[in-house]
Design a protein around this nucleic acid. Structure first.
Length: 342
DNA sequence: AATACAATCAACCGCATCTCC
DNA sequence: TGGAGATGCGGTTGATTGTAT
């Protein structure tokens, strides 16, 4: 007989989460942090296993989730990271602020995989389909990785590995990048996340990269690590969007409150839950039952941009890509650090 | 309008790894 | 050092939604 899951064993609730369950989980984590996940269901009054709570939080309730469709830049980045890392979804997602491994994985399986096949590229090997049986034999000592020209950039990893663009002549379909030698490349250095704009700068030079890097160094990136220390307010509260309609009981939060999305002091476990409303700090209890149709995306889209612009006195990243400042704002968020809250 | 099929995505499962005792 | 529990990850499933016929 097959081994049953923990939820089965304990006769816990399974399946889709109700708004009430989401509220309970949200409120609990807002007040106390998740702590030990296995104790969360009990403390939050949920008939779920800790694993399920964790998953729900990471993939859906977490405030920094971007959601929405993937941009072309993100798609390119996923493809190239996948060519390097394989199905290391968590590592790939770590380079995509606001995206979860589950989301990236689904996107890959439902869209990119198919698209690559249509282009005649084996999504597993990233080689032309006719060629896909040959084995990659890149030198193991060389951590520099050539990339196709559809992505023109260079990324430097914490161990010195680099992604370097090739020349501008070859289309990726004809000359796909060689698979990476080493299967596991650590995430970019903390605080040195590559802005997505960087991946789409002009292919003929690295000026975009350098500009991005320079601006990045200037910018005060949202330090999610700060959130890991209860009571340590971040310089800027930069939750990204989440489309969950179940996160909507955030009374008092409105798009117009973006200007209030700023340095929130006060020792709250989750500063982002204290985004001010009418200059007042809104407590968790205050959210219940209100604004059920307000979605995280509705609130946060633009909130961060405005906050960044107004609080930083500059756009975090406004050069090189030609877009307007708001559209080009970059979020440097280490999504994984969120799991360390309290 | 009804049905079938395809696409999407939230959630589950099981295994690997980590941490603590 | 080994065992137990907690956590993280990747693969897979199945419900829902969208589209074609």
């Amino acid at each position: 007989m097959a081994k049953q899951s923990c939820c089965h064993k304990k006769k816990l609730r399974r399946g889709l989460w109700s708004p009430e369950e989401d509220d309970k989980l949200m409120n609990h984590i807002a007040k106390y942090g998740h702590g030990c996940w296995s104790s969360v269901p009990k403390l939050a009054g949920l008939e779920r296993c800790g694993k399920s709570c964790r998953l729900r939080w990471i993939n859906y309730l977490r405030p920094d989730l971007k959601r929405g469709t993937f941009s072309q830049d993100e798609e390119d980045l996923i493809i190239h990271l996948h060519s390097m890392l394989g199905n290391k979804w968590s590592q790939i997602a770590a380079q995509l602020p606001g995206r979860t491994d589950n989301e990236v994985k689904n996107f890959w399986n439902s869209y990119i995989k198919k698209k690559l096949r249509e282009r005649g590229i084996d999504p597993t090997t990233h080689k032309p389909l006719a060629d896909s049986t040959t084995t990659a034999t890149a030198g193991s000592g060389d951590r520099r990785v050539a990339m196709s020209t559809t992505v023109s950039c260079r990324a430097v990893f914490s161990d010195g590995a680099e992604l370097i663009p090739t020349t501008t002549t070859t289309a990726s379909a004809q000359a796909p990048p060689p698979p990476l030698v080493e299967p596991t490349i650590p995430p970019l250095v903390d605080g040195l996340k590559m802005p997505l704009e960087y991946w789409s700068t002009a292919p003929s030079s690295l000026s975009g990269y350098h500009q991005a890097l320079s601006l990045q160094q200037q910018a005060t990136a949202f330090d999610m690590d700060a959130l890991s220390h209860c009571g340590g307010p971040p310089a800027v509260a930069v939750p990204s969007a989440c489309r969950s309609s179940t996160l909507t009981s955030m009374a008092g939060l409105s798009p117009g409150g973006a200007e209030q999305c700023t340095n929130v002091a006060g020792g709250a476990n989750l500063p982002w839950l204290e985004l001010a409303h009418n200059n007042g700090v809104v407590g968790v209890d205050h959210y219940a039952g209100a604004l059920d149709e307000l979605r995280w995306a509705d609130y946060f889209d633009g909130a961060f941009h405005a906050a960044a612009a107004t609080q930083q006195g500059q756009c975090m990243y406004d050069g090189g890509s030609g877009g307007n400042a708001a559209d080009d704002a970059v979020q440097f968020v280490d999504v994984h650090s969120l799991s360390n809250w309290c």
